[in-house]
Computed example of a mutant assay.
Amino acid sequence: MPPTVTVEREDAVATLTLRRPEARNALDLALKEELLGALREIAADPEVRAVVLAGAGPAFCVGQDLREHVQSLESGAWATQRTVEQHYNPLAQTLTTMPQPVVAAVHGACVGAGLGIALACDLRVFADDAVLGTAFGGVGLTFDTGLSATLTWAVGAARARELVLLGETFDAASAVAWGVAGRVVPADDVLPTAQELAARLAAGPPLAHAASKRLVAAATTRPLSKTLAAEAAEQDALGRSADHREAVEAFLAHRKPSFDGR
């Protein structure tokens, strides 16, 4: 069987591509496991400083593969597979906690768990033809892949309720206007723009990027006093780093810094 996720590397940028175009990158068991494995491998690779996540074919990702899902319901496998716990939760956790910034290149349909994956990334580039939606209510289910948190943080509780309860799709321009951070570009420019952003991130300070991701991920779940303590600890560690010294020296010398991740 050909791989359902491919990884291409250019310098310090890794591009992960979902490759079930005939199914609009619906998440079957193989794709979920391959994606999670690839993300975990990249997260542990210090040579990778930024990641692009894209989808092959006409869509970014339409969420759970319902054909496989029906088979699992009929066989009773759904009760034992526990795919939310085994796949969707770890995917959201890995994307939000891996040290490298992740840029989602979103085109075509991006719904259900596909939307959850896109919102778990750090940055997003949307094609002007992107169609977004929660889609869960249409099959009698609710949020997964962390979407109840990430969508609510992005657009607010009132609109998040509307989007999941009514299940209406929306376009990229609306998503950005509502607070889903990202930029909208012509469809042909989605992947190149995402890769340009990733290259820019890869040239930046990897230690600071990782610290910033940790602080943002925890900011809404702990009191201000603990957030302030965490900021102090992160800044203290970064202040002792060679990267910080290099950046200060480069600033004073009017040159671009070169970050080594030390």
Score class of each variant (00 low, 15 high):
residue 6 T to C: 00
residue 12 A to G: 02
residue 13 V to D: 07
residue 18 L to A: 00
residue 20 R to G: 00
residue 24 R to G: 11
residue 25 N to P: 01
residue 27 L to V: 02
residue 27 L to R: 03
residue 36 L to H: 11
residue 36 L to P: 03
residue 40 R to V: 00
residue 41 E to M: 07
residue 48 V to P: 12
residue 50 A to E: 06
residue 50 A to Q: 05
residue 51 V to F: 03
residue 52 V to H: 05
residue 53 L to R: 04
residue 57 G to H: 06
residue 57 G to F: 07
residue 59 A to W: 07
residue 63 G to Q: 02
residue 77 A to P: 01
residue 79 A to H: 07
residue 87 H to T: 14
residue 93 Q to M: 04
residue 99 P to Y: 01
residue 100 Q to M: 06
residue 105 A to C: 03
residue 112 G to P: 06
residue 112 G to D: 09
residue 113 A to K: 01
residue 115 L to Y: 01
residue 116 G to E: 14
residue 117 I to W: 15
residue 122 D to K: 11
residue 125 V to L: 13
residue 128 D to T: 02
residue 128 D to M: 02
residue 129 D to V: 03
residue 131 V to I: 01
residue 131 V to F: 08
residue 136 F to S: 05
residue 139 V to W: 03
residue 142 T to V: 13
residue 143 F to H: 15
residue 146 G to C: 10
residue 148 S to C: 09
residue 149 A to Y: 15
residue 149 A to D: 07
residue 156 G to H: 02
residue 160 A to K: 01
residue 161 R to A: 07
residue 164 V to F: 08
residue 165 L to Q: 05
residue 167 G to S: 00
residue 168 E to N: 13
residue 168 E to Q: 08
residue 169 T to S: 14
residue 171 D to Q: 12
residue 174 S to P: 01
residue 174 S to L: 08
residue 177 A to G: 08
residue 178 W to G: 01
residue 183 R to T: 12
residue 187 A to F: 08
residue 189 D to K: 13
residue 190 V to I: 04
residue 193 T to A: 14
residue 194 A to F: 06
residue 204 G to P: 02
residue 213 K to F: 07
residue 216 V to A: 12
residue 221 T to E: 05
residue 221 T to N: 10
residue 225 S to A: 15
residue 232 A to C: 05
residue 238 L to K: 13
residue 239 G to H: 08
residue 246 E to C: 12
residue 246 E to R: 14
residue 249 E to Y: 04
residue 249 E to H: 11
residue 250 A to N: 13
residue 251 F to E: 15
residue 256 K to Q: 15
residue 260 D to K: 15
residue 262 R to F: 02
